[in-house]
C-alpha cells in the first residue's frame, strides 16, 4: 500500500502542497487531475525525494517504508518509478549502460550480455522503436514521443511496482499515444503495479482506466471520484465539474 498522510511541502518559503492525503492500494490505478500550478508534478518529485522540495509535515509510506526518510536512490530501489513529462537528455551515457548499472547495483542483473541485449530488443519491438535505442544516449536528440518510449523501455527492464506517470501523454501524436498506452496496459496486466497518472487528456485513461480520480487545487485534494469524474472534467472543465472557476489556481 502507498499512503501519503498530512503532507505539507514547501519550495523556499512557498507552500506547494498542504495537508495532502492520498492512499493507493496495491494494483490500483489512480488519476490525479488539476489545473496548471496546482501541485501535481510536485507530488511526483516529492515522492522521488527531489531535494528541491522540503517536506515540513507528514509522511509518505510505501510497503511500510517511510519514503520521506529515504533519498532518491533508496526510493527507486523500493521499485518506485517516475516518468516525467519532459525526461532530460544525457549525452554520453547509453540506455544500456544505465540499465546494466542500475540492475547490477541492485543485484538484479541475472542475464548475460547477450540475453540482456535480446531482452532489450524484444522490448524495442514491443514499443515500435529501432533496436539502436539500446545503445543511444539517454533521451539524447530524441523527439518527445521517442523519449516517452525510451522511458518505457527502461521501465520494462527495471520492473517497478509503483509507477508515476507525470503527463506522459503530453506531446504525443495519436499513434505514439496508442503505443505508449498499450505498452503500459500490457505492463499493468503482467505485473499489476500501482499507478498514479497525472494527465490533462482522456486518451491514456481510455486504455488505462483509473479506479479513482482525484482533483488537486492549490496544493489540496478538493474532489475524489471514479473514472466518470475524469470524463466530466474532460467534457466540462474543472470549474463546471468541481466548483466555480475563480476558485481555481491558474
Amino acid at each position: 500500500m502507498f499512503e501519503i498522510k498530512d503532507l505539507t511541502v514547501k519550495v523556499l518559503d512557498k507552500t506547494i502542497l498542504e495537508d495532502l492525503n492520498l492512499t493507493i492500494n496495491d494494483g490500483e490505478i489512480h488519476c490525479l487531475m488539476g489545473p496548471n500550478g496546482a501541485g501535481k508534478s510536485t507530488i511526483s518529485k516529492v515522492i522521488m525525494r527531489d531535494n528541491h522540495y522540503t517536506i515540513t509535515k507528514g509522511t509518505i509510506f510505501y510497503k511500510n517504508f517511510d519514503l520521506t526518510k529515504m533519498d532518491t536512490t533508496e526510493v527507486a530501489r523500493k521499485k518506485v518509478y517516475l516518468i516525467s513529462q519532459n525526461p532530460i537528455e544525457i549525452a554520453g551515457i547509453t540506455n544500456a549502460e544505465l540499465l546494466r548499472t542500475a540492475l547490477s547495483d541492485n543485484n538484479e542483473l541475472n542475464e548475460n550480455i547477450l540475453e540482456f541485449n535480446r531482452h532489450l530488443k524484444d522490448i524495442c519491438t514491443k514499443l515500435a522503436i529501432p533496436n539502436d535505442f539500446i545503445h543511444r544516449d539517454i533521451n539524447y536528440n530524441m523527439s518527445g514521443g521517442e523519449k516517452k518510449k525510451n522511458e518505457l523501455m527502461q521501465m520494462w527492464m527495471l520492473k517497478p511496482q509503483f509507477i508515476i506517470l507525470d503527463e506522459i501523454d503530453s506531446g504525443l501524436d495519436v499513434d505514439a499515444l496508442k503505443i505508449v498506452a498499450s505498452s503500459l496496459k500490457e505492463y499493468y496486466d503482467e505485473y499489476k503495479p500501482s499507478i498514479l497518472i497525472i494527465t490533462h487528456h482522456p486518451g491514456l485513461l481510455e486504455i488505462l482506466k483509473p479506479d479513482y480520480v482525484h482533483v488537486l487545487n492549490k496544493g489540496k485534494i478538493v474532489k475524489n471520484g471514479d473514472y466518470s469524474l475524469a470524463l466530466n472534467i474532460f467534457h466540462d472543465g474543472f470549474g463546471a465539474s468541481i466548483m466555480s472557476r475563480e476558485d481555481f489556481h491558474e
Binding site: M48, D50, D71, T72, T73, V75, A76, R77, Y81, L82, P87, I88, I90, A91, G92, I93, E97, L98, L99, T101, A102, D105, N106, D137, I138, Q154, L158
Partner: peptide, 28 residues
C-alpha cells in the same frame, strides 16, 4: 543536479551516478 536526480531515480547511487555523468560528459 537534474542529471544526478534522474540517474538516482533509476536506482543508481550518488557516487555511481556521478561517475557515469563525468564519463559520459567526456565520452560525449
Amino acid at each position: 543536479e537534474e542529471e544526478l536526480f534522474y540517474l538516482k531515480s533509476k536506482g543508481l547511487t550518488k557516487e555511481k551516478a556521478i561517475t557515469l555523468i563525468k564519463n559520459g560528459f567526456l565520452n560525449s
